[in-house]
Amino acid sequence: MGRKMGFVVDSNRCIGCHSCSMACKNYNQLNPDITWRTVYDIKEDTYGQPTRITMSLACNHCDIPACKEACPTNAYEKREDGIVIHHEERCIGCGMCVYACPYNVPQFDKEKKKVGKCHLCYERLDNGQSPACVSSCPTQAIYHIDTTSLGDEFAKSLPGFPDPEITKSTTRFIKPSIVRKL
């Protein structure tokens, strides 16, 4: 079986600080309105009593990437290691991928008139470094791993995350513990 590089999002350790999201922008020098990684609040009453918990999401580097399926110019590539990358020079900015992705991952850059998205900092991985988001997380709540190695203790979804089965998302989650309000 091939490798499936993807992210593990540990919502038990995520503190909702947004460092990952801004580190991505800082490293990739994205235009102001473009965000490749986003920190979401999980709805406060999802687990019964109200709390504040978060999950950090970027590209899910799907097994069946809807972006790739939808792209008319073959701008997307599913690498052997599972990373889904977007070749900007082949992109005509038609936005088909933007509509196709159930997770709203590809972002249309009005200035470039092209789409862009998280590519798991593959060039950093190739250099033996971690993705910018991973290395910037103060609580080690995100990491990248060959997700084929992960067992059932890792969830495929958290409340609010779209159905991961449609595109076979490789993102895996560790569920948050819920604080006891006394």
Partner: peptide
């Protein structure tokens, strides 16, 4: 109930 409280075992409001 802050984001820090969300990481605690117990929260006292």
């Amino acid at each position: 109930l802050t984001n820090t409280a969300g990481k605690a075992h117990d929260f006292i409001q």
